[in-house]
Structure formats: C-alpha cells, structure tokens
C-alpha cells in the first residue's frame, strides 16, 4: 500500500518534472516545438514499452466512439500552453491554476452529463478553489 502511494506521488512529481523540462525546451525553441518533441519522444517511449509488455491492441478499440480519438490534438495545445506558462508564472502557479481549471471544468462536465454527485461538496469545493484563485490574483497581477 505504501509502495503504491509512493508511486502515485511519484506520478505527480513526474507531471511537474515533464512540464519543467518542456518549459526549458520552449525557452530555447518555441512552445509548439516543445510540444512536438514531447509527443514524438513520448510516442517512441510508449511504443517501446508496449512492445515489451504487449497488449497494445487488446480489447475492442475500434468500438470506441470517434470523438474518443480527439485527445491528441487537444494534448498538443495542453503541452504547448504549459510549456509557455511555466516560464511566465512559475511551476507552482502553473500547476495550481491548471488543477483549478481541471477541477471546476470537471464539475461542469459532470453536471452537464448528469453524473451523480453531492451538490454540497461540489459547491464547497468550487468555492474554495475560486477563493484560492482570487487570493492569488489579488496579490500578483496588475
């Protein structure tokens, strides 16, 4: 259990590490080029891992709805934006605001799709996140 908890924390560390490395590459090149290298190097790595472990095409991937295949282009913008932002507002602010945006849009998506959830917890969570963004914004921008 402690091992898996450690691995889950490590996964978060690697998200931040990846954004920093991509951000450094974007400083010398451009955010979009950084996103390109992130994707092609990641593609090579995952292909190698899939060949090693097998099962890449397991299941019924052809049955998935067409829109499920749109994650790639969205990811390109996501990585480019993160690479650009990290040099402008720092790793912690970037992480924090991306998390805030993910959480709040996640709640909106859940409500739109009619996913079950506790409305009080949703309200409290969104309110705390908005308060945190307000505190940060008041202190930083001009």
């Amino acid at each position: 259990m402690i091992l898996f908890a450690g691995l889950a924390i490590l996964a978060g560390v690697l998200v931040s590490l990846s954004r920093q490395i991509n951000g450094r590459l974007a400083l010398s090149t451009s955010a979009m080029e950084s996103s390109f290298w992130n994707h092609i190097v990641g593609l090579g790595f995952i292909t190698a891992a899939a060949l090693l472990f097998g099962g890449l095409f397991a299941g019924e991937p052809a049955q998935a709805p067409w829109w499920a295949y749109l994650g790639g282009p969205v990811g390109v913008i996501f990585i480019a934006a993160g690479s650009w932002l990290i040099a402008k507002i720092g790793a912690a602010q970037t992480a924090m605001l991306i998390i805030a945006g993910q959480m709040i849009s996640g709640v909106v998506l859940d409500i739109v799709m009619g996913a079950p959830g506790n409305p009080w917890a949703r309200t409290a969570g969104v309110a705390l996140i908005l308060a945190g963004m307000w505190v940060s914004h008041r202190g930083k921008t001009r």
């Binding site: 019924e60 049955q63 499920a68 994650g71 934006a81 605001l97 991306i98 945006g101 993910q102």
Partner: peptide
Amino acid sequence: AFGTGGLLTLMVLFNGTLAGFGSLFF
C-alpha cells in the same frame, strides 16, 4: 492556465473513453 486545466478535463474524457474500449497503452 485556468483554460488549460479545462483542456485537461477534455483529454481525460477522450483518453479515458478510449481506455474503456482498448488497453491503457492504447
């Protein structure tokens, strides 16, 4: 940055749906 977080929600939705049909590697 806030909008970028919204993109992440879309990616989780798209890639997560894909994982429901194929492997996590896929």
